[in-house]
């Protein structure tokens, strides 16, 4: 019986099977298709960010004011420098990765080892930098007051320079009663009781300092935040302010709409997660290179595949950099 191995008469023809139309190995092809689907996930996040941005186009936080820290330069306004440094670190680790792939093509185990090692270091430095960026973002710098409608009121002096709450708020004598679990912890889980100053203290301090003004979220035609007059500031603070906001979390942030912090945490967090996974993959491959797995296999294609992933992570950061910090 020859029924199970029937000849179709198409061997050697285009549709006869056995040829590789895309000229890539299975693993590499699947990595490309994974990257394509992951790219769509990230574009969905960034497009959703764009949606919120266009929705609040005239009241969105100004990135230069939010991300203006640099290590060892306390209180110096350094917009962009830190994130530019992070971008360079990631691009450079991409370069060492592609050098490792190139060395793999020449079966040069020593060079692959060195470049893989440098790539891992670059990735670790990047993730560490991102953690520092998060720390600054979560702690905040100046503090602000939130209104009933969720609008953020920030404080500036007469030169429109930002003023921190601690610089003018008056500490009032008050009884702070420790909240007992017996009173039910869940009923007021939303209340922000741990802020350094209450709204009353801020209002008192504001009244005592005539050179402080309120800055609202809305932008004027030059893209600057609108600063209210002294009378309007006082009225706004007295009538609308309900809570103190210091730093950022998922529901409140001192920079502007809560969505801004949500997207920042989610997109840079998801990207940071990708970088962390990339570091782990790189470490696995690094040890495989060390013990000579690919030397025996006769091909360093595994380095190439993990390299594709690593470059993709770099590619995503290029877009995050543009849409969070530049545009």
């Amino acid at each position: 019986m020859e029924a199970t191995v029937a000849q179709t008469g198409t061997e050697g023809k285009t549709w006869g099977g056995g040829n590789k139309p895309l000229g890539a190995s299975y693993g590499k092809l699947m990595m490309w298709f994974f990257i394509a689907s992951d790219a769509l996930t990230f574009s969905a996040f960034l497009a959703a960010y764009g949606f919120s941005r266009f929705k609040f186009i005239d009241s969105w936080p100004i990135a230069d004011e939010v991300f203006n820290h640099f290590p060892f330069l306390h209180g110096v306004d350094a917009p962009m420098y830190y994130v530019a440094l992070m971008t360079f670190i990631l691009i450079f680790s991409s370069v060492t990765m592609v050098l490792a792939v190139d060395a793999g093509h020449h079966m040069n185990k020593k060079k692959v080892t060195l470049y893989m090692f440098l790539t891992i270091i670059g990735g670790l430095v990047f993730v560490g930098s991102q953690a520092w960026e998060w720390k600054n973002f979560i702690n905040g710098t100046y503090g602000a007051v939130e209104t009933r409608g969720g609008q953020i009121l920030q404080f500036v002096d007469t030169d429109h320079e930002r003023v921190a709450l601690a610089d003018f708020a008056k500490a009032l004598p008050q009884d702070r009663v420790e909240h007992q679990p017996s009173n039910g912890v869940w009923y007021d889980a939303d209340k922000q009781t741990s802020a350094s100053f209450t709204v009353e203290e801020i209002t008192k301090g504001f009244e005592a300092n005539p050179n402080i003004l309120v800055r609202i979220q809305q932008l004027d035609e030059n893209g600057k935040k609108i600063v209210l007059s002294r009378e309007a500031s006082l009225a706004k603070l007295k009538n609308d302010a309900v809570t103190t906001v210091e730093g950022a979390n998922l529901t409140h942030n001192e920079y502007g709409p809560p969505l801004f912090a949500d997207f920042f945490f989610f997109i840079t967090g998801f990207h940071g997660f990708h970088v962390s996974m990339g570091i782990i993959l790189n470490i696995i491959i690094f040890f495989n290179v060390l013990v000579g797995t690919y030397e025996r296999r006769g091909s360093y294609e595994m380095v190439e595949k993990v390299g594709l992933y690593w470059h993709f992570v770099d590619l995503v950061w290029v877009f995050v950099f543009t849409f969070f910090y530049l545009v």
Partner: peptide, 22 residues
Amino acid sequence: TVYKAYLITWAFMHMEGEKKGL
């Protein structure tokens, strides 16, 4: 940014060396 993405994909991810179909 799109130009940078093009450079990374074509040069680093070696898209320039892949087949047209891929």
